[in-house]
Write a protein that binds this DNA or RNA. Structure first.
Length: 326
DNA sequence: ATGGTTTTTACTGCGTC
DNA sequence: GACGCGGTAAAAACCAT
């Protein structure tokens, strides 16, 4: 879905043309036949040459009132100029509303047969409209997912997964009451974890437009409702990124991985934040391999406090004492 | 809502460059 | 003196109940 760029621009905002400008521009327009002056005939939506009568443009939209009006009251009633269309409305304000009252245009009551008919029309009209709303919703969400994913440097397949999750959430009606942003973020968060390239909540928070609490709440909700199975993130999955962001070498990563493996069964990992463990492992490994870095630096790229790194890395080293790694 | 656990914040002292 | 590091206490956040 990467190449699906929206090619169809909805509507270029049309420059408003005041009647005066139209008059003026018409003056300058020459008739292609006889070279005479072309004037616009608003009443019929045509542009006509005043000399030879050639109709130059006949498909203009006539924005004028429907009939001639002789006084202001009549003008109000007969004008067909309504609310301007706007891109703020997803359908440009052009969708149809079918009145709930069972009356015809003259205010007369409809008979039973007509009422049933109208009821059916209402139903379908509503169905089409909500389908449109979902499409629009999806479009926005996918854009959002794309934006966040690239900000976090997440690969293509994660975006795929995220959009699948989002689609499912949408089709199971999980959206009402929740923000598009929030669900999109939750979907991406889940997708990243499933793909083995997790991003911490802090990172998600920095690229998302919704705040942490909503992300977690929505995330839990989505996971539960869709029965997504997400294992707790493995600290090792954070290693490559932390290491590379610090510009450390391959053996640091290997050593860190060794430390994590060596301590895996010791109950050290459970209940602790995976990022914290990973950060600590990297720091410890940097000591072991003499590729120095500082706790502060590691903490920064992993968004973890130095205190946590200190606590974790001491545990890592003492527990893995017996089994020297490399 | 509550309590237990983990993480963060803020502050301190020590040693080194 | 700035910096990296270690430690502590209290606050905040998180999670299961």
């Amino acid at each position: 879905m990467s190449e699906t760029r929206t090619t169809a621009r909805v509507h270029e905002t049309e420059a408003r043309v005041t009647p005066e400008e139209r008059e003026r521009s018409d003056e300058t327009n020459a008739c292609p036949e006889c070279g005479g002056r072309v004037v616009s005939d608003e009443e019929h939506g045509e542009s006509v040459c005043s000399d030879c009568g050639l109709v130059v443009e006949d498909d203009e939209i006539d924005r004028g009132p429907e009939w001639r009006a002789f006084d202001s009251g009549e003008r109000d009633r007969k004008s067909r100029v309504g609310t301007p269309t706007s891109n703020m409305m997803h359908d440009q304000g052009l969708s149809t509303d079918i009145d709930w009252q069972n009356k015809d245009a003259y205010g007369n009551r409809l008979n039973a047969r007509q009422r049933r008919r109208m009821q059916r029309l209402r139903t379908w009209n509503e169905r089409f409209r909500t389908r449109d709303a979902k499409e629009r919703n999806l479009k926005q969400a996918l854009g959002e997912i794309d934006r966040m994913a690239s900000a976090l440097g997440l690969p293509e397949n994660v975006r795929e997964t995220a959009s699948v999750i989002y689609r499912r959430a949408l089709s199971e009606d999980l959206l009402p009451g929740r923000s598009i942003e929030g669900v999109a973020t939750a979907a991406l968060y889940a997708a990243a974890r499933q793909a083995g390239t997790p991003r911490s909540l802090d990172e998600m928070e920095t690229v998302s437009r919704v705040e942490r609490m909503e992300i977690t709440r929505t995330y839990r909700y989505v996971i539960r409702e869709l029965d997504l199975e997400v294992r707790p993130a493995d600290p090792e999955e954070y290693l490559p990124r932390i290491v590379s962001e610090l510009g450390l070498g391959e053996d640091v990563e290997r050593t860190a991985r060794g430390l994590l493996d060596a301590t895996r069964g010791e109950g050290l990992h459970s209940g602790k934040s995976p990022v914290g463990l990973a950060a600590a492992a990297v720091y410890a490994a940097s000591l072991l391999t003499n590729e120095r870095t500082t706790q502060t630096e590691v903490g920064e790229v992993a968004t973890i406090s130095e205190v946590t790194i200190r606590n974790r890395y001491k545990e890592l080293l003492t527990v893995s004492e017996g089994a020297p790694t490399v």
